[in-house]
Design a protein around this nucleic acid. Structure first.
Lengths: 399, 399
DNA sequence: GATCATTTGTCTATCTTGGCAACAAAATGG
DNA sequence: CCATTTTGTTGCCAAGATAGACAAATGATC
């Protein structure tokens, strides 16, 4: 409970955090701009910026571009190396690892395809460590590691990085956080694991299509469907971090049986399997099969276009439910529907409007992901960086 | 944005607010208990309590019961008259008005039945004013009015109390906040209107079955269905306050046509109409018809029991969707299903567990409303009181 | 290019707020 | 009645933000 008794040191923490967050999210700013934004006194800003510089989190270089008479104000900007996160995404078909610093600076990134079904937890952890090693080694000398953030495609408990299950990875009860912590060692800092849709939402909110939009839903579709929810500027995780499992929402009692055991789940109508089935693809899963459908769409294949339109319709139905329930400003489509956006847009919007009430349906925008496959990596970085931003003076103290 | 620059006065506000909220929600406390809870120094607590007393919001009387040696600590408690809200609930069949003070103290309450369909906005506003007048007049002299809180059964914009529409009241585009403000005059303070399910959730969270439980869903069923969501201790309102319209979630594409124009909405399967249809009631709506079904249930009528079990099944289906999406600790059933709880419980739980994923489904509790029909009134009171609690020193300043 | 107005950084005194320590007060228990 | 314990009160201190005076750096003007 930070919300109980507050003392003067809490003021400091809050103001340092506000400044650092501002610089982290919106880039450089002159001291006088910081005064205007925070409403704090020049003297106070001066002191705070100096403190952040002493913490190696911020640098001042150059002065503001002249906009009239007056003494120029020094420009403060984040020092990306001041806190660097090893961000990883464990997806069904792929693995990605990146080193991302303050300000969202990507130092380096590697992606690998993972043959579906061959990614046991142990094998995956080994591979992540193997990819992360060289990235960490290649960081400039003045970088401070701030932790490991992992986006995992599964139902994940945030408190300890435990993956309850992931039907699409074929995992069950995996202590992923502990395993990665052991594999990577203590020196990289704490390991934080979260659901990939939640982190996609966070990534798009902080650095993507949802920047500055405090109520948004990120819909992540790879094999299954997950939703990441940002409500009032805060990630909505639920009581134990399991919120956002939208893929198993009932939309069609006469539909297919889902992997989860129930019938008519949303993802049976709009997931990868549904797409391939509708488009009469020879395969029932896999990246290559999806690529083939995308190719047919680009070529104007009538069967594929009809199939995608039907998928778009069901997509919109589920989105309508979400819009009714959550009244977001924005829905960001990630993964599959980011690629298929042009083809699904019309039927999806029509179905969404049909299934949701004015005025909520009238105010919502729907856009494809701006960060694409990197949304989750940026979200994973934010997950760790937010700890430092929340209390810049205590970095590197509690581990 | 209160979250930007923080200064010393913000500390004061925060600490005053913390103390007042503690006393408001959890009743009296000795000064030494307040020290323990907040972690603040004795001197500071002394100063803060004296300030709250000077603001007429708190009184000290008596001393703590002796639990050993040591000087007894004076007991601080909220002064209910320090801030009194006129709380109103505009339901489909009824109207309720109450005067509720700090600490949730109900000074007086009146309820009236409203014949369905005869409650035009103007007539309703007139009636609310007519009921409120005597309640206000009968308040003790030392009471300070803190505003009017209204729970309305409809899609409501919080910022200005505009009711977009309410199918069950038959309203459309009603500036309810303004109308009530005019009818009641300036002296009662600001008028705040919100959705009845949202306020039911708030009421149960602050003073009912969900006390202390930071992630809960309140399902309000009268004629339609609405959900009120408390997430992380904060009411989840969405971008414009329209969140929680769960009644129009698609659950059955082969179902009935809903008043909203779409097919297969949740409330077509579990609302009052569905209940009466399933139980083969001679009427299709109305309190009396529902009462008759409840009577048959109590008498063990087989047809009614089967009907309610089927309704319970669909209730659980929708709840499963909500549990997947929001991962609550608790679901509170209000309205119709509070009365029918014993009869729907088993099929509802079974369906909910079927339709939602472990571990989210395993951790959720489902209970009937603890406040019953008063939940919305208490929520409406909290709506206004929370302004004063957030900044006790500025009460009565901004209007 | 010198001068002035303007803006901003810096420094110091001051204000607000909470903490601390010493002391007083009020209870229990022998 | 006195020792012990707990808590309220009071005066002083520390942390942090502010205000005002002054200096520095720039553009505009002559």
């Amino acid at each position: 409970m930070t919300s109980l008794g507050a003392r003067a040191s809490g003021l400091r923490r809050h103001n340092l955090s506000t400044l650092l967050e501002r610089l982290h999210l919106r880039g450089s700013a002159s001291r006088s701009e910081l005064c205007a934004v925070t409403g704090l006194n020049r003297s106070t800003i001066s002191d705070l910026v100096q403190r952040l510089i002493a913490l190696d989190l911020v640098i001042e270089d150059g002065v503001s571009a002249s906009t009239g008479p007056g003494r120029p104000s020094p420009i403060a900007r984040v020092r990306p190396g001041g806190a660097v996160v090893v961000a990883a995404e464990i997806a069904v078909d792929s693995l990605a690892v990146a080193t991302i610093g303050l300000g969202g600076k990507v130092f380096a990134q590697v992606n690998t395809e993972m043959p579906r079904g061959e990614s046991s937890p142990a094998e995956t952890v080994r591979k992540v460590a193997e990819l992360a090693g060289p990235l960490i080694a290649s960081l400039p000398d003045d970088c401070t590691l701030a932790g490991v953030g992992v986006a995992a495609a599964g139902v994940t408990r945030r408190s300890d990085g435990f993956v309850h299950f992931s039907p699409n990875l074929g995992w069950k009860d995996v202590p992923l956080g502990d395993m990665l912590g052991e594999a990577l060692g203590e020196s990289v800092g704490p390991v934080m694991v979260a659901n990939e849709a939640d982190l996609g939402a966070l990534g798009e909110y902080r650095r993507g299509a949802g920047f500055g939009i405090d109520n948004l839903i990120f819909i992540s579709t790879e094999v299954g469907i997950g939703a990441g929810l940002i409500i009032g500027g805060t990630p909505m995780l639920g009581a134990a971090g399991y919120a956002g499992e939208a893929g198993h929402m009932l939309v069609n009692p006469n539909g297919q049986r889902c992997q989860c055991g129930a019938v008519g789940c949303w993802e049976t109508e709009v997931g990868e399997t549904a797409l391939l089935r509708a488009a009469r693809s020879p395969q029932t899963s896999g990246l290559a099969a999806v690529d083939a459908v995308v190719g047919r769409l680009a070529a104007g294949d009538e069967e594929a276009l009809t199939a995608v339109a039907r998928i778009g319709d069901w997509l919109g139905v589920g989105m309508g439910n979400l819009v009714n329930l959550l009244n977001p400003d924005l829905v960001v489509l990630g993964g599959l529907f980011s690629r298929l956006h042009d083809y699904v847009r019309e039927p999806m919007l029509a179905a969404m409007r049909d299934r949701s009430l004015e005025p909520a349906s009238g105010m919502v925008s729907v856009v494809p992901s701006a960060l694409g496959p990197s949304a989750q990596l940026h979200g994973a970085a934010e997950l760790c960086l937010s700890r430092i931003i929340a209390d810049p003076a205590h970095r590197a103290v509690d581990y």
